[in-house]
Design a protein around this nucleic acid. Structure first.
Lengths: 121, 121
DNA sequence: CAGTATCCCGAATGATACTG
DNA sequence: CAGTATCATTCGGGATACTG
């Protein structure tokens, strides 16, 4: 059989990148921005559970990683638009697949949870 | 607290499931187990950065969610084998795609990070 | 071997207030 | 509008010790 060498398939750097991309908020932000560009407060409304601070933090990290572009529109007051980058766009199919998977499989997972909780009571 | 509003493609339950599946350790555990079943300490060795506690916690959650099966082999001393479930198996292609994506895109991301850090100094 | 049980700390998060 | 700043708190994770 193919042998799994000591050491994961995933280096720390790869793990970090996936962490910073697939976490709770980033996944949703990317999903939203794949549809269309949004302003800061539009994003807040689109993702009701996120706080201002968490949204800012996640957006900065996505921007730093080159996944998202921050476009400042010179109106008064200033408008800031967040736009998916070409790099971010390469995730679109993957994100769609992940969301589809979670929709399809959630019922099955919930049954598994009930069974587990039942057995370990 | 986290209510789902129209516009959010992801309910709290879906977000939670993805969180518990794509987090740092679970992703790697699932990746390993998709290859072959492993014992507890084999997994520890295969994922050198994980601690015993984190591994136990992640495995329990994966088991509860029906992604992984815990098989107790009656030898002396007891052996415990972790095996991917059919439900967990439905993630294999997605996980492969994610790992491939991170491998392909990491250099691009690192360039973006350098550029960002350069500009914001 | 395959865990469980504690203790403990630092990072992540929330609440709140303030600003150009 | 689009944040920044600050403080309080929670909570995941590491270190360590112990067990059937």
């Amino acid at each position: 059989m193919a042998e799994t060498s000591p050491g994961a398939r995933l280096s720390a750097a790869h793990r970090e990148l996936l962490d910073q991309t697939l976490d709770k908020w980033s996944l949703q932000i990317l999903d939203q921005l794949c549809g269309r560009s949004l302003r800061f407060n539009e994003l807040r409304r689109a993702i009701p559970a996120v706080t201002q601070k968490s949204l800012t933090t996640a957006l900065r990290r996505l921007e730093r990683n080159g996944m998202v572009t921050r476009v400042i529109v010179n109106t008064r007051p200033v408008a800031v638009e967040y736009r998916i980058s070409p790099l971010g766009k390469t995730l679109q199919d993957l994100i769609d697949a992940l969301l589809a998977w979670s929709s399809e499989r959630l019922p099955e997972v919930e049954r598994a949870r009930s069974r587990f909780d039942e057995e370990n009571r």
